[in-house]
Design a binder for these strands. Structure first.
Lengths: 345, 345
DNA sequence: ATCGTTATCGGGAACGTTACCAGAAATTGC
DNA sequence: GCAATTTCTGGTAACGTTCCCGATAACGAT
């Protein structure tokens, strides 16, 4: 039962490949009986067009490439689910690559996907990506790209983001309203847009509430929480401060869980000694000890929107003048890690 | 800066495509100066061979397909990381597809990957897959396939599994030794091999310790924990028993967290009223309330072994007589969800 | 000088598909 | 009844690459 081709059909049916091809595409210029003949035989033989041949011919592949830092992270895996559901419905396939927060792998993945003739790219930057020429070149060639969440700064691009400023503002405000004054912020490297935006929201919330911003309360982790030691020292440095914080606000998924892990390990009571609140999409935040107050991003919806936009760009390649930015809302889910429970005396 | 082909090189260098092709492959029958000329020009123009054309020609793609239930699950995302690292080093690319525990999507993904000419397949069955003809056909055609974890029963195949019997036995024994007698088992559908093996280990441990097996303590969840309601009723039915269990042993990742979620929701104290122990690879089990005792599978190593085996099968297509089964060990990590803490009086 | 070798290169086919260009047969119009 | 049109089908090139088969020249060897 080898795979059957148009040539095979043509041979057994005594037709030319052109005729078979057109019959299969239901072309108007083919006799109905011939069509029926071909279609039935193709059906019987379980004919499937060879996508490789099609790709080679049309240099397009009906597939979109996804480059993300890592899939073992609920935000990104939910994002992928959002991407897949739309792509699937619109007849596109999704090819996923992880950069593992490495610039080199991001570049390698990009090159490979391009040579594989993906029709478009969905990208969330690695935390170590500072140089963007690999994407800029593609953009100039006209490759449709939509960036998600971790988007480049200072380039005109299509992007799907959340209102990081507000999400961060709201979170910080919540901490202030629940009585915290010395709020630390553990975040990603400054050259990522999400970092500056979240930092700005945090800072604004502090200042709007009469708390002066203190740079020593801000820690930047370059590996996005992938290296526990980095996180550990960040937290330790915070604890060593003359006035250690009474709350930590973490800016990304990994950072949040690894900070919590460090706090537990150091036997610091949450929320009594230290409130904890973080950006994360973990599905099990309510199982944590204590259940974790989180800023969650609409990952699935972001995937939907990004994919819709990308496929629109692919199928209607217009003048690339208007770059679209869609900004979605985060939601703050309050649980026990920021609110002291009233213990019965 | 369009992509450059062998033809382009041939034209500008006044050579034939054959010569250029051979020069690039460093063939012996090409003059060293010509070689140098071609190689330097190719380098300068950043020539990259078109993998699509190569695939079409050789009907192989230097890529392997992965079909798993879902990536938003730590076991599978760790598995993927294991797969990727080996594949990457051996020059293969990895194409990931999710079945979302749906038989239809598993079949669709399989067909697509085959038409995309992947050189081999790594598969972990969906929980709703009972018919295996889509894989059996491929096997007969000689497609290299290695199954992982959720493997078919009653077929001769290559597979990487864990010693489910022992993992389960050990877990159940731990529950017994910590004083539990009425141990429930929440698991996947019976037609999955992991289900019967884990069930057998559970049963054996009970009987070896003088506890008779009671079918009413076993609940099968067909959607692998994807549907919370199914889980909820399972737990509720256990609680409604004349003698409700004092421990629940869950057999898979999703099942474990969703059971815990139900228990918390019903305000049942863990481990005092109910011990909980489950198969899961979640990286945050220690953050849970209480920290969760888990049976963890060596997911990354399983990915390594499966990929090594698969690539060996791809590159050395021998007689398919000897089917290899590699069985790895699980490890029981004891935390508070099964051990009552001594509370200060 | 003729022939077999060696070194070096080009031509063409093939992988599976579609699009363009023709051409034959059938049908229409007058 | 003949030209014009419609209806249907076939041939071929092209996408990028490799490989098989020849071809050409130079070079000794006989």
């Amino acid at each position: 039962m080898e795979t059957i081709t148009i040539k095979d059909i043509a041979r057994t049916l005594n037709l030319s490949t052109s005729t078979v091809s057109r019959a299969l595409r239901n072309s108007y210029e083919i006799n109905n009986e011939t069509k029926k003949l071909v279609l039935e035989y193709a059906e019987k033989m379980n004919y499937r067009p060879n996508p490789i041949a099609l790709s080679l011919r049309d240099s397009k592949s009906k597939s979109i490439g996804v480059i993300i830092p890592e899939i073992a992270n609920n935000f990104f895996s939910q994002l992928i689910n959002g991407i897949e559901s739309i792509a699937y419905n619109m007849g596109y396939h999704v090819v996923i690559f992880q950069s593992h927060e490495s610039y080199e792998r991001e570049v390698a993945n990009t090159n490979y996907l391009v040579s594989r003739k993906v029709d478009g790219l969905l990208v969330s930057l690695s935390s170590l990506t500072r140089d963007l020429t690999h994407f800029e070149e593609l953009l100039e060639k006209g490759m449709p790209i939509v960036f998600i969440d971790r988007v480049p700064k200072n380039i005109d691009i299509h992007k799907i983001v959340v209102d990081n400023f507000f999400g961060s503002y709201q979170a910080t405000e919540h901490l202030i309203k629940t009585g915290r004054r010395r709020i630390a912020h553990v975040t990603s490297p400054l050259y990522l847009s999400i970092t500056t935006e979240r930092l700005a929201g945090y800072r604004q919330a502090l200042e709007d509430n009469g708390i002066s911003f203190d740079e020593s309360y801000v820690k930047y982790c370059h590996h996005g929480g992938m290296m526990l030691e980095e996180n550990e020292t960040a937290v330790q440095e915070l604890l060593n401060l003359p006035e250690p914080p009474d709350a930590i606000f973490t800016a990304s998924d990994r950072l949040t869980t690894s900070c919590m892990s460090v706090l537990i390990q150091k036997n610091i009571k949450i929320p009594e000694e230290m409130a904890l609140l973080g950006f994360t999409n973990t599905s099990v935040a309510e199982l944590f000890n204590p259940p974790l107050t989180t800023v969650v991003q609409p990952a699935i919806d972001m995937g939907h929107q990004a994919t819709e936009l990308l496929i629109r760009l692919i199928e209607h390649p217009k003048k690339p003048t208007i770059f679209e930015t869609r900004s979605l809302q985060t939601s703050l889910i309050i649980r026990d890690s920021t609110v002291e429970k009233i213990v019965n005396a």
